[in-house]
Amino acid sequence: MSTVKLTVNGRAVSVDVEDRTLLVHLLRENLNLTGTHVGCDTSQCGACVVHVDGRAVKSCTMLAGQAAGSNVTTIEGLAKGGELHPMQAAFRDNHGLQCGYCTPGMIMSAVDIVHRHGGKLDEETVRHELEGNICRCTGYHNIVKAVLDAAGRMKVAQAAE
């Protein structure tokens, strides 16, 4: 057992967990942040993607201890003050989700994709960049549309800041 201290969605937390605890389990079981999901056991599906120190990583492939001292953002921390993040809004407006299970990881990865590529995204790049996130419902068609749409919205939002 170890005490792991980290910041989650802007809040400092301290949690006692077994050393074998994965970050995703710390989030789901200890902090009740159940928006982050587990869809596989081979680190491929991406349902568990969160941001650790600004980078989109698979929280099922990281020990809680590895995240000690880090800043973690989960899907629950993305909307600011009740206002949807442009990526969340774009997923809704473009019907980029059906069952919703892969959606949190998909959105967290997508935000990271836009951060890395800025407004220079095209369909091919988005499809390639989504290779670490599996969706069984949408055929990705509307997810790709949503990411491209959000890239535009995020550019506008950034310009406004």
């Binding site: 942040l33 159940t34 982050t36 949807l84 809704r92 407006d93 919703g100």
Partner: peptide, 15 residues
């Protein structure tokens, strides 16, 4: 647009 989406895109779905 779907009524159910808000809970899914904000991590509030209940599975």
């Amino acid at each position: 647009v779907r009524k159910e989406d808000r809970r899914f895109i904000t991590g509030q779905g209940r599975y």
